[in-house]
Simulated scan of single mutants.
Amino acid sequence: MANLMSAFARILQQRNHFSRLLLSILCVFSLLFSCGCGTKDSRTQISVWSWEPSMKRLAEEFELNNPDVHVTVKDTSGYNNLNSAIQDGYGMPDIVQLEYFALPQYAVSGQLLDITDRVKNTRTFYTPGTWSSVQLGGRVYGLPMDSGPMAWFYNDDVFKQAGVDATKIHTWEDYRQAARKLKDIGVYIAADSGDASFYNAMIWLAGGHPFMTSHDGKTVTVRLSKDKGTEEFTKFWQSMIDEGLIDIRTTTWSQRWKNGVGAGKIASVFSGAWMPSLLLENVPGTAGLWKVTNVPTMHGEKRNAEMGGSSLSVLKSSRKPEAAMRFVNFVCHDMRGIRTRVNG
């Protein structure tokens, strides 16, 4: 009997030890769980969709000066993505980068926040052209980020291999002769798979006026086949394509295009003045090889056009418009943010 009681006592002792061990483990888990809950980010969360290479760095600098706000940057581009998010009603950013030609389309459909009263003292900070580009009907729907006066960016190393001095190219015929020499070494002077913004800019450069509006703005007339500038550029560019001097299979900004530019198989690009930072971002291996000069015109006229340029806008659906506007101001109006973008 004594032996039985002794064995029973040992079992109880072991069970009590196990219970204390289990309780200790539970306490540790409870402590860890409570600590995890305590680290929840209480900052105001805003999201930005932008293709600007310096945007993530801008977000970091903004957060240093605005510790109550956290900015998530996604390099989402392409208006199809934005349109899908708007149509689905979820997954939309608070802030979106829009090219000037696209901004009115989203403003007129009621997707953008009217910030007119928030930016009354910023109008004179911008050039008249960029400021007018963020307005519709006298109301402001974004702040200008940049402008797009056209320039010709070219890989000087590749041009030299072909025996071409790009600084001496002033006319379309000069450009054609250079393209032929580049073709002889297996290089395209440019790629164009049908980019409408490029075509529009080049028509502008040629002095074309294919679009007309009525005085009340309700009627738009498109005269692509009857406008002199449009006809002249179209004829020239088609002749370049027919001669096999333009890569028509490669879409600008596609991976194929980046690979072609990086390998020196596509030697130049007509673009807005915003191009350098994007070249550094997308084809860093060619840094130092590129130069820039004026875009050649039909007869060497001193003329230019604009291509691109963009703004930052706050979507009307944003639940944090105040924090979003603080970030837009930092990027587009605060000299600290502007310096960061200029420095790449």
Rank of each mutant, 00 (worst) to 15 (best):
M1R: 03
N3L: 11
N3W: 08
S6E: 13
A7R: 15
F8I: 14
A9E: 15
R10K: 13
R10C: 06
R10F: 08
I11G: 04
H17E: 09
S19Y: 07
L21K: 12
L22M: 08
L23S: 11
I25H: 09
I25F: 15
V28H: 10
V28C: 13
S30H: 09
F33Q: 14
S34P: 07
C35Y: 15
G36I: 08
G36H: 12
G38S: 15
G38N: 12
K40Q: 14
W49A: 04
K56P: 00
L58G: 01
A59C: 09
A59Y: 07
N66R: 03
N66P: 03
H70N: 05
T72G: 11
V73K: 05
D75N: 14
D75G: 06
Y79W: 14
N80V: 08
N81I: 07
A85E: 11
D88N: 15
G89F: 08
G91R: 09
M92C: 03
P93R: 11
P93A: 06
I95W: 01
L98E: 01
S109P: 10
G110S: 10
L112N: 06
I115T: 03
R118N: 03
N121P: 06
W131G: 00
W131A: 00
L136R: 09
G142P: 00
P144I: 01
D146N: 15
G148E: 02
P149A: 10
A151Q: 14
D156N: 15
V158R: 09
K160G: 09
V164L: 08
T167Y: 12
T167E: 12
T167A: 10
K168A: 10
E173A: 08
D174I: 10
Y175G: 00
Q177V: 14
K181N: 00
L182S: 05
I185A: 14
Y188L: 04
F198M: 10
N200G: 14
M202Q: 14
W204T: 09
H215S: 14
K218P: 05
K228N: 14
G229C: 03
G229T: 03
T230W: 02
E232S: 15
F233L: 10
F233C: 06
I248W: 02
T251F: 05
W253H: 08
S254R: 11
W257P: 07
N259W: 07
N259Q: 14
N259E: 13
V261A: 10
G262P: 12
V269D: 01
F270L: 10
L278H: 15
L279T: 02
L279R: 08
L280N: 08
K291G: 15
T293W: 11
R303Y: 08
N304I: 05
N304E: 03
E306T: 07
M307C: 08
S313R: 09
V328F: 03
V328T: 02
H333V: 03
M335C: 06
G337Y: 02
R341M: 15
V342G: 05
